[in-house]
Computed example of a mutant assay.
Amino acid sequence: MEAIFFAGIALLCMVSFIFKLLTLRGSLAAFLTGALTFYSFQWQGLVILAIFFLTSSLLTKWKREVKEDFNAEPLEDKKGRTAGQVFANGGTSMLAATGAILIPDPVWLIMFAGAFATATADTWASEIGVLSKTKPFHLKEWRKVEAGLSGAVTRLGTIAAVIGAAAIGASYYFLYDTSTFMASGIIIFAGFFGNIADTLFGAWFEQKFYCQICKTETESKWHCKTKTTRIFGLPWATNNLVNFSSTIIGALIAGGLYIWTVK
């Protein structure tokens, strides 16, 4: 039976590569993430992973022609999610899965779900929020900025983040044998505030660039088919690093609250 699941994970990764949801290296990274998830958290963990991956991929492609000017890495999106993007969103869940193998404890499952709740909330907020009819408000610069910059929020994006985190929290409740909403509530809370951490990290540390052609700020090193100029942020503070850091925060919040309130 386990061999069937591993074969299914491999097949799904291959299909994702063929349909350009993932690059080749991205599909290999996704297989590793899926295999570890199944080994530690069984098929239910795969469903949580799939909810994040499928919804994120569909939202990325949804109204892409409208988003192209805002996406941090538009060329990468056309080829699919890279290994870096897979590990940025799924790396923390892999650490939780590894922890569950080395030191079996229910807290690892909560941390796993908290990490994916954060990744889902962040992705939904970004992909839906960028379509807001009102300009986002930047938390550090304390002004309205152009859509697509990290560190900025919209009402639409915030609502999307809550719903994204709730999707993972609700999935946990229905997939695992539980008689209380406490753990699901913890996951939703952790996912939303992990997303807030992502926004703050993006506002204070992530790189920003300026396009000399269209005179706008962007997160991309290339814009309007021209190399942009870095105007802010730490050289090593990439979007992938910010995403990974926020999922760590979400997992730690989930694990800490679970130990404090449930165990």
Rank of each mutant, 00 (worst) to 15 (best):
E76P: 01
M182F: 00
T98S: 11
H138P: 05
A115M: 07
L139N: 09
A167M: 14
H138W: 04
V162K: 12
T158N: 09
R81H: 15
E73K: 12
W124S: 04
F174S: 01
L102F: 15
F193E: 03
S179D: 14
R155K: 08
S184T: 08
F193L: 09
R64K: 15
A113Y: 03
N89T: 09
A115K: 06
A170Q: 06
I110H: 02
T134M: 05
G99C: 08
F174V: 12
G164Q: 14
K79I: 00
P136N: 15
G90K: 06
D77K: 15
N71G: 00
G90I: 05
M182L: 15
Y173A: 07
T158C: 06
L149C: 06
H138Q: 11
A183M: 07
E76A: 13
A161V: 02
Y173P: 01
A152Y: 00
S126I: 13
K133N: 14
F181S: 13
T180W: 00
A203C: 11
W124H: 03
F70K: 14
I196C: 08
A72Y: 02
K79H: 10
A125K: 11
I168F: 04
S184V: 03
P106Y: 05
R81D: 10
K133Q: 14
S93F: 01
G90N: 08
D105M: 06
S93N: 04
W142N: 15
F181E: 09
Y176M: 09
Q85F: 02
T92C: 12
F87W: 14
A88P: 13
Y172W: 10
W62D: 14
K67R: 09
K144N: 14
E68C: 00
F70I: 03
G185D: 14
G169D: 10
F116L: 15
S150T: 09
M182H: 02
A96S: 15
A121W: 08
D198R: 03
F137I: 01
I101R: 11
V107Q: 05
K135I: 00
T180V: 08
I196H: 03
V130K: 04
A115C: 07
I110T: 12
W142T: 12
F174M: 06
G99N: 06
G194V: 08
I187P: 01
G114S: 10
H138M: 10
I163Y: 03
K61I: 01
A203P: 05
G129M: 13
S132P: 03
A167K: 01
I110E: 01
E146I: 06
G114A: 08
D177A: 11
W124R: 04
A160D: 14
A72H: 07
W142E: 14
A100F: 07
L131W: 10
A160P: 09
I168M: 09
A72N: 07
A197K: 04
S126G: 10
F181D: 06
S150H: 02
N89R: 07
A83M: 13
A165P: 08
A97N: 03
G202V: 06
A117F: 05
A161R: 03
A121V: 09
E146V: 12
T82E: 11
A170W: 08
R143T: 13
P106I: 05
E141G: 13
